[in-house]
């Protein structure tokens, strides 16, 4: 008997034809796209000198107009708080609507459709629409982040409701409780911890997002940043960015700590 002296690792895609077609397709896509991207090479080539100018203009960061910075940041905070509150209030009924185990089919589809729609659009797009509808300023920001909160909180809350122990609901129904007291006694206690956790998480995440939606005019520190950029105040822009990053790190740490202590 002769023993084998050749061994090859079995390829991930068994059929060689399919494998090569796949490789060639990927390579063609990558090369094709990179080659046909409408890139203005001349403009890009100037990038380095431009970057140097920007960075030398940005250092040292300027905190001279810290009043503007603080008021922008406080506005972001208020937007985040209000949007979180409103978002949570709206998310609870929506989540009940979108839970398969307690809602009739049409209501379920309506609820689910609402937050799929809310999730699909990036907050910046939502913001730009709201800015056009209700004008520049924190109101557009708060509305945007409310939509953003609904998309996230309602979805996760609905999933939590679908996971509940349904026996408790049956028990309440069997003692003749009304629909509303069934909700309060059998479902709310089961989803309450998740609701509070989501609220804290969402506050953190709204604070981040409020820095961004401001760039398209929806108030808060993002608006301050966009203005600084627009007027080539790169030193002030750097100061703002540093404050945003610091605030995000702090809020992430705080929300993480609270959620850890709660569970």
């Amino acid at each position: 008997m002769t023993t084998q002296t050749v061994w090859r690792k079995p390829p991930f895609i068994k059929s060689p034809a399919v494998r090569w077609v796949f490789y060639i397709a990927v390579a063609a896509y990558v090369i094709g796209t990179i080659a046909t991207l409408p890139i203005d090479w001349e403009r890009t080539a100037q990038g380095l000198t431009r970057a140097q100018r920007i960075f030398s203009g940005a250092f040292p960061p300027s905190f001279e107009r810290s009043g503007l910075l603080i008021s922008g940041f406080m506005e972001s905070l208020k937007i985040a708080i209000l949007a979180t509150t409103l978002g949570m209030i709206l998310s609870v009924p929506l989540a009940f609507m979108a839970a398969r185990n307690i809602s009739p089919k049409p209501v379920y589809l309506l609820g689910r459709g609402t937050f799929i729609l809310a999730r699909s659009f990036h907050p910046v797009i939502v913001a730009i629409i709201f800015v056009k509808a209700v004008g520049f300023g924190p109101l557009a920001g708060a509305l945007t982040l409310t939509v953003y909160s609904i998309g996230f909180v309602a979805k996760l809350l609905a999933e939590r409701i679908e996971e509940i122990d349904f026996g408790q609901v049956e028990a309440m129904r069997s003692v003749g409780a009304s629909f509303f007291s069934t909700m309060v006694y059998a479902i709310l206690p089961q989803i309450m911890p998740r609701l509070v956790g989501l609220g804290i998480y969402q506050l953190d995440s709204n604070l981040r997002a409020s820095a961004v939606v401001g760039i398209v005019g929806a108030g808060g520190i993002g608006a301050t940043l966009a203005n600084a950029f627009g007027r080539y105040d790169y030193d002030f822009a750097l100061a703002i960015t540093m404050v945003i990053v610091g605030a995000i790190l702090i809020s992430e740490a705080v929300s993480g700590m609270i959620r850890k202590r709660m569970t």
Partner: peptide, 17 residues
């Protein structure tokens, strides 16, 4: 690349057998 020397593959099959 998983291109092992022929004698290693032979020995591997011997031992595995």
């Amino acid at each position: 690349t998983r291109r092992y020397p022929a004698e290693d593959i032979e020995r591997a099959f011997e031992l595995m057998e």
